[in-house]
Structure formats: structure tokens, C-alpha cells
Design a protein around this nucleic acid. Structure first.
Length: 274
DNA sequence: CTATAAACCTGCTGGC
DNA sequence: TGCCAGCAGGTTTATA
């Protein structure tokens, strides 16, 4: 599923390939994808604008357009952005939105489950649209001290807090499980029960698993694809997620699975004790 | 503040 | 072999 690492990887690919191109047509195959403004206005307000940059906040892709507009894309569960080269006429399965570029190429947004959402904002509106997110885990401000302040006084399970986008931005089910395993912390531990050493380990583990994910083009467990349609290979580097019953890579104990915050949660009962 | 559930969707898996 | 219930999970909204 597209979490921070998957979105960041595609943002970098797009930055290198479509910045400078002008969008000459927007076709909306499934209007439900467009959250704001109404689909007809969305298309009309984008046509003619040039892509100036591509960035990311949390799991949201930010495409800066000329005229002080920003196109936001949240892929949710199954959305993908893929480049179609000039002359490519094949229409991909589950196509929801198409952005035709002035050089004949196109950006295809596919999304089988239709959970993903796009919106167009003025540069002035953008901060409000993104206001609820917590700190970026890959930014310099995400120190052990900062994480400690986030956990302080919170009685929730640490895994539930890691998934809370207003606490920390960008972690999803895969990388939350991986970070907790690497830091050797049980997912049901109360957030404010972590000591200073555990907080430091968790901070370092979060940064490490995200960097690993980005380097390998993201985790393709379900449908994630890169901008060129390629699969991410980070699945080969996961140590705990979806390994229920298999031996723990650290101690050999079978990996356990429980439900935390309504999510399948994988951990080693020997390395991660309550 | 916290927990829980439902809703949004559809492909896929497992049980019978 | 074929059918179908149930699962998967990011986010929002509602309820307790």
C-alpha cells in the first residue's frame, strides 16, 4: 500500500521526468476520484498549466502547477500514477484520471478500489489542507526528543499512535510493524510507557525502515507500482510484516499476528515483550 | 483523550 | 469446479 516511502519514491521519479511539461487535457474517467473542486472545475482549472515541481507531505503527493496552484494526490489503498510515453495508446485497466501532456506523453491515474482522492488548491489554501499532519519522520526536526514529546501523556497502544497521521505523518501498517520490530517494542505497549532508550531506538528504526523502503522503490505487496509501472522490491527486505508463523529473523520464534487499531499486526513474541 | 465500528470499494482467498 | 462470505487497509465520520 502506498505509505510515505512509496509516495516519496514516485515523487522523485516524477520530479525527474515531468517537471516542465504542460498539461493540455484532463480526462476524468471516474469523477469520485476528484474531491475538490467539482470535477468539471477541476479539469478546467488545470488545463494549460505547467508542472513546476513535485513534492510530498505525509502520504500526499504535491504537484505544483503554474499560476500558484497545487494538485494533491492521495493514493490511499490501490492508486498508482504511471507515465505513458508518447504514442502509447493502450488504456490501462482501472484508469480513473488522465493528464495529457504537451509532448504527447500522459500521466495515468489508476485505482481499482476507487479510494484514492485528488484535489486542486491555490497555494494560499494548501497549508490549511495539510494542517492536520504531524511532523515528517525524515525531517531534521524528527529527533528522539520530539518523538518523546509526541508520546508523552498518551495512553494509547504505540502502534495505534504510529498510525495516527496527526501524531507522525506518513507511517502505515507495513512500516509501523517493521519499525516496532526493529526497535524491539511490543505493538500494544502504552505510548507513554517507553523509556528514553526505547524512544531513541524507535525514532532510529522509523527513519531506517523508511529509508530502506525508498531505496528499494517501495513495498509491492498488493498493487504499488513506480512511475514507470515497475514493482518495488522492498518486500524482500521486510522482516516482520505478513510473516505470520514464519521464524523470526532474529530469534527463530514463529511470528505472531494480532489486531491492533483494527489492523493486522505482526510481531515477534520473544523479541517484543509487553 | 480513547476506543470501536461503519463506510468507502473491489480483487483475492479460503471454505464448503 | 464453482460459489460466496469474508478479508485486506487509509481515512473520515459517527458513536460511546
Amino acid at each position: 500500500m502506498p505509505e510515505l516511502a512509496e509516495v516519496e519514491y514516485v515523487a522523485r521519479q516524477m520530479r525527474a521526468t515531468v517537471v516542465g511539461a504542460r498539461i493540455v487535457r484532463v480526462d476524468i474517467q471516474w469523477p469520485g476520484t476528484i474531491a475538490h473542486p467539482p470535477p468539471a472545475d477541476f479539469a478546467e482549472q488545470i488545463v494549460g498549466r505547467t508542472i513546476l515541481g513535485v513534492d510530498r507531505r505525509a502520504k500526499v503527493l504535491l504537484i505544483a502547477l503554474s499560476g500558484d496552484r497545487v494538485l494533491t494526490v492521495h493514493r490511499r489503498m490501490s492508486g498508482n500514477l504511471e507515465l505513458a510515453e508518447a504514442g502509447e495508446t493502450r488504456i490501462p485497466l482501472y484508469l480513473r484520471v488522465t493528464f495529457a501532456l504537451d509532448d504527447g506523453r500522459a500521466i495515468h491515474y489508476t485505482d481499482p478500489r476507487k479510494f484514492g482522492r485528488m484535489a486542486l488548491w491555490s497555494a494560499a489554501e494548501l497549508p490549511t489542507a495539510l494542517a492536520a499532519f504531524g511532523p515528517e519522520p525524515l525531517s531534521p526536526e524528527f529527533t528522539a526528543e520530539r518523538l518523546g514529546a509526541i508520546l508523552h501523556g498518551r495512553g494509547r497502544a504505540i502502534k495505534a499512535l504510529l498510525l495516527d497521521q496527526t501524531a507522525i505523518a506518513g507511517l502505515g501498517n507495513i512500516y509501523a510493524d517493521e519499525a516496532l520490530f526493529q526497535a524491539m517494542i511490543h505493538p500494544l505497549r502504552s505510548a507513554d510507557s517507553l523509556d528514553a532508550d526505547e524512544i531513541r531506538r524507535l525514532r532510529d528504526a522509523i527513519v531506517a525502515v523508511l529509508h530502506t523502503g525508498i531505496v528499494h522503490g517501495g513495498t509491492t505487496f498488493g498493487r504499488h507500482r513506480g512511475f514507470f509501472g515497475e514493482v518495488g522490491t522492498n518486500l524482500d527486505h521486510l522482516q516482520i510484516y505478513q510473516r505470520t508463523g514464519q521464524p523470526c529473523v532474529r530469534c527463530g520464534t514463529p511470528v505472531a499476528r494480532i489486531i491492533v487499531a483494527q489492523r493486522g499486526t505482526h510481531f515477534c513474541p520473544e523479541c517484543q515483550v509487553l
